[in-house]
Simulated assay, not measured.
Amino acid sequence: MQPTTPLFLQKFSSNAPESKELQRLTSFENVENKNRDTYLDMIRIFINRNHVYRRGHVEFIYSALKNMESFGVQKDLEVYKALIDVLPKGKFIPTNVFQAEFMHYPKQQQCVIDLLEQMEDNGVMPDYEMEDLLSNIFGNRGFPLRKYWRMMYWMPKFKNSSPWPVPSPLPDNIYELAKYAIQRISSVDVQSQITVYQTKEIESSIDDTWIVSAQAPSQKDLLKNHDLKEPVYVEGSFRIWVKDQLVNYFVLKRQPKQHIKTIKDDLDDVSNIRTPIFSFQKPIEKQVQVMQSVHEQEDGVILAVCATGTSTKDSLLSWIRHLEKDGNPVLSDALVVFTLRTGTREVATVNNVEQKQIESK
């Protein structure tokens, strides 16, 4: 029994001439229900046209690539293979070495190269079936097949090379993304501890949200030895990307401390060399310089880092109060300056709920 043509495609069968209705249905901008099934149906409509070489396939592929994100199929391998299958087979295969090296049918080859580039940008790994498609369309000497071979060599090497693996696809929950982001930032210190706070545990809190915080024992020691005459700053928001998702985070920091070098002699100075055999003078006094931690940077000392569900000043104030209870009592007497990117800056002490507005710099 021969398969019947679906009702959706009967009026566009191989015997039907090209019509305005067909052009409308193959236009991705005019589609209302944008999903994967609709996207594949439009590709099948275009393939079933009664043209030997399917004229306009390059423009169709570029239009399909442009609208992939609106249909949510930019990471679907089967969709990319369906687009490659739009091209006619055997027409673009070079017959001699000159045609192969001078890019026989350059418009069509460049179109497929752009398709493979978009696959690579979206992290889509090709398979061996795609190699057969490209070989049947452009031959074994085609530039798209060379691009495919390069992708198959490099992409498996980098697929699992990230030290911060995340699931694919990414979770839609911003809370899970924040944990991945803070874990990536705090991995600079292997002793960093990630803690999740709830703002509702603070009595005077207004927001009801979560706080993902990270702090290492060395950062607690730096905060313990902090001079109360100097303020500590809450800065942000800064941006970090978890794959293609953006997460905002904040840091607690203070001004950098000037370390005085105590080594008196220049070790590269050879103008006055002394030998231990003929020189009976007292040895030169040398002192050991204190090694700076990884949290002491040139622009400041990082004391903690966090991401909140609302990224508001109230949630950050709740974060400071949670840090105070979690082994940082010095914050109860310290002057906390909120230098958020809102045009104003607020000074607040943890014990006092009142906040004083001052002019921004």
Results as ranks from 00 to 15, higher is better:
Val337Leu: 08
Gly123Phe: 06
Tyr80Gly: 12
Gln198Gly: 00
Leu177Met: 08
Thr38Glu: 10
Pro94Val: 00
Glu120Phe: 04
Val188Ser: 03
Pro283Thr: 00
Asp85Phe: 11
Thr349Met: 05
His57Thr: 03
Phe280Arg: 02
Phe71Asn: 15
Val294Arg: 05
Pro329His: 08
Phe28Asn: 10
Val288Met: 03
Glu201Thr: 05
Lys264Ala: 08
Pro106Ser: 10
Asn30Cys: 04
Lys243Glu: 14
Glu120Thr: 15
Glu78Phe: 06
Gln193Ala: 08
Gln183Tyr: 11
Ile240Ala: 02
Glu354Tyr: 13
Asp189Cys: 11
Lys356Ile: 07
His57Lys: 06
Ser218Trp: 02
Arg55Phe: 01
Thr95Gln: 02
Cys306Asp: 09
Met155Pro: 01
Lys20Arg: 04
Leu303Asn: 05
Ile284His: 12
His259Met: 06
Gln23Met: 06
Ile174Glu: 14
Arg345Ala: 02
Val196Ser: 07
Ile47Lys: 07
Lys107Ile: 07
Arg239Trp: 01
Asp132Tyr: 11
Leu40Ala: 10
Phe8Asp: 10
Tyr249Val: 09
Tyr197Met: 04
Leu145Cys: 02
Arg141Tyr: 06
Leu25Ala: 05
Ile302Leu: 11
Val301Ile: 14
Pro163Thr: 04
Pro167Phe: 12
Val31Arg: 04
Gly236Asn: 02
Phe238Thr: 01
Pro163Gly: 00
Thr349Ser: 13
Lys253Arg: 07
Ile320Arg: 13
Ile182Met: 02
Glu101Trp: 12
Val190Asp: 00
Ala334His: 01
Trp210Tyr: 14
Glu298Ser: 07
Glu21Tyr: 11
Ser19Thr: 13
